[in-house]
């Protein structure tokens, strides 16, 4: 692995609190190309701490691209310039010596900045609480092999279920729309037999909460799909739209 280092100029967004004004602060760093961008900030933070300065607040956890905790906007792109990875998987070998790198938090009304690079994404949880589940209690369920599910269908459901809830879709969307996130959960259940009983009720409830929280509407620019670390497809949004219309247009089941 590489012995050389890169010299970079970082412009990192610092904001002391949700109501305070923020601004970019410049930092000059020297970093190994094998380090991840978060490891670079770790090192920078360590030196800030040594000087008695407050480290840059940012979130990360698994550092394997699966927990969805990290999410920085790097040179205008959520999770940086490399497709299909989370911020923690962005390695500095993707940059050139002398580059200027802008690091900002997600920007969306529904994801307010809490401090520096950390935003509040609890809106996603609220969408989930509204209907992101199959209503089964623990115990008393049929044998796992009782309902065969075609491999293709399981794969389609899994494609949607891979969403890590990082919020990059919202961050990338010029309308800060949460449709890719919401539709991924809707689709995961909409295609499986287990999800059918609540299929149409689920989509209505989740969309209603999504709208309430101030996420924007979709204008089909597909920036969400392009920036999604898991490559979740906008076909899920189409699925959600369809289910939403069906749910709105069909009469109440009780009347029929």
């Amino acid at each position: 692995m590489a012995d050389t280092t890169l010299k970079l100029k970082l412009k990192i967004w610092r904001q002391p609190g949700p109501k305070a004004a923020g601004s970019f602060v410049d930092y000059d760093v020297e970093v190994s190309p094998d380090a991840s961008i978060l490891e670079m900030i770790d090192e920078l933070n360590n030196s800030l701490e040594q000087e008695g300065k407050e480290p840059i607040v940012f979130e990360s956890d698994c550092r394997e691209g699966i927990c969805g905790t990290c999410g920085l906007v790097i040179n205008g792109q959520p999770h940086g310039p490399v497709p299909k990875i989370a911020t923690c998987q962005l390695h500095m070998r993707q940059f050139n010596d002398g580059d200027t790198v802008y690091i900002e938090p997600y920007r969306a009304k529904a994801f307010p900045v809490m401090k520096d690079l950390t935003v509040d994404r609890s809106g996603f949880d609220k969408i989930m609480y509204a209907g992101g589940f199959v209503s089964v209690n623990t115990g008393g369920v049929p044998d796992a092999n009782a309902i065969p599910i075609p491999k293709e269908v399981a794969a389609r459901s899994m494609d949607a279920a891979e969403c890590i809830g990082c919020g990059a879709c919202v961050a990338a969307c010029k309308n800060a729309s949460a449709m890719l996130f919401t539709s991924a959960k809707v689709t995961q259940f909409a295609v499986l037999p287990q999800g059918q009983p609540e299929r149409y009720e689920r989509v209505q409830k989740m969309v209603a909460v999504m709208d309430e929280l101030g996420f924007g509407a979709c204008t089909n620019t597909y920036a969400c799909e392009a920036e999604c670390p898991k490559g979740i497809s906008v076909k899920n949004i189409a699925q959600m739209n369809r289910d939403f219309f069906v749910s709105k247009l069909s009469g109440s089941k009780q009347e029929a």
Binding site: G76, E104, R107, K109, K174, N175, A176, G216, T221, A223
Partner: peptide
């Protein structure tokens, strides 16, 4: 409504990297 959902812009505009010109200029 969409402007309100995203009141702040990014310092670097990288929209051309993830969406088509036509879609952004409707």
């Amino acid at each position: 409504a969409n402007r309100q959902a995203r009141p702040e812009r990014y310092a670097v505009n990288a929209a051309s990297k993830n969406s088509s010109y036509f879609s952004r200029t409707m």
